[in-house]
């Protein structure tokens, strides 16, 4: 279980997040929905340790407090973040990116088997191992980013808009892979998405973020039919009877 309490983030005088509380379960997909600028990316960065959280913040991973430790040690604790813009090493090859994914000590045992699982999940990467990452298409780079995160043997995977820039067909594939990762590797996934429709279809639970506040939450099937969600995020889906 990933238990988050009192997470606030300030950028200078602007407060981006206000006392966020949320939970992510292993083997489940939790989605965080919100419009542009709601604070979704900031929230993931705060969990990953890339932006500092305010006093009193608590982030417990399997009962262990990680809110005060630096980003690289959070990876050792079992958290893997695929940030906005993917954060892959553009000048390095696909193979090197995946190899670095296994840099964490927790990832050193069974590394070969894990690489095989990642390559089974994203068969495209197998043919592209020597290619320099930044010369690949957006969808392929997203696979590199997720594959690299999986190589660190995470208990929890935080993904910032994995469907961004992908065609609808590729987005569907991507979401299918997420389902497999969650169930087969028993990883808890926290997903930030603008694509509310597709993400609620695969998610187990959802949170709604607005202006830095959690304004709603519930099981995904409830959110799918909730009038507030339909209005705010699935507007185009509401067809007048």
């Amino acid at each position: 279980m990933l238990e988050i309490q009192n997470v606030s983030v300030r950028y200078g005088r602007h407060q981006a997040l206000f006392d966020i509380a949320a939970q992510v379960e292993r083997g489940k997909i939790t989605v965080l929905l919100g419009t542009n600028g709601a604070g979704k990316s900031t929230f993931l960065k705060a969990l990953g340790g890339l932006v500092p959280t305010g006093p009193g913040a608590s982030i417990k991973l399997g009962g262990v407090e990680i809110a005060a430790i630096p980003a690289h040690r959070r990876v050792e604790a079992g958290l893997a973040l695929v940030p906005e813009g993917r954060g892959i090493f553009g000048k390095l090859s696909v193979a090197e990116n995946l190899h670095l994914g296994g840099f964490a000590h927790r990832a050193r045992t069974d590394e070969k088997e894990r690489l095989e699982r990642v390559l089974d999940l994203f068969p495209r990467l197998r043919e592209r191992m020597p290619q320099i990452a930044r010369t690949m298409s957006g969808g392929e780079q997203q696979m590199v980013a997720m594959g690299r995160a999986m190589m660190s043997h995470p208990d929890f995977l935080l993904l910032d808009e994995p469907s961004l820039g992908l065609s609808p067909l590729l987005s569907k594939d991507m979401f299918k892979s997420l389902r497999r990762i969650a169930s087969e590797a028993d990883v808890g996934i926290l997903l930030v998405e603008q694509n509310a429709k597709l993400s609620l279809e695969i998610a187990d639970y959802g949170y709604l973020l607005e202006n830095g506040h959690i304004v709603g939450q519930g099981p995904a099937e409830e959110l799918r039919s909730s009038p507030a969600v339909l209005r705010a995020y699935l507007g185009e889906e509401v067809v007048p009877a």
């Binding site: 890339l50 630096p70 954060g87 090493f89 553009g90 390095l92 670095l100 964490a104 990832a107």
Partner: peptide, 19 residues
């Protein structure tokens, strides 16, 4: 490779547990 990774992108390096 980790040394080169820091040269390429220090922030991304932190995400793969590199100090």
């Amino acid at each position: 490779t980790a040394v080169r990774a820091v040269a390429v992108d220090p922030e991304a390096a932190r995400l793969v547990a590199i100090d």
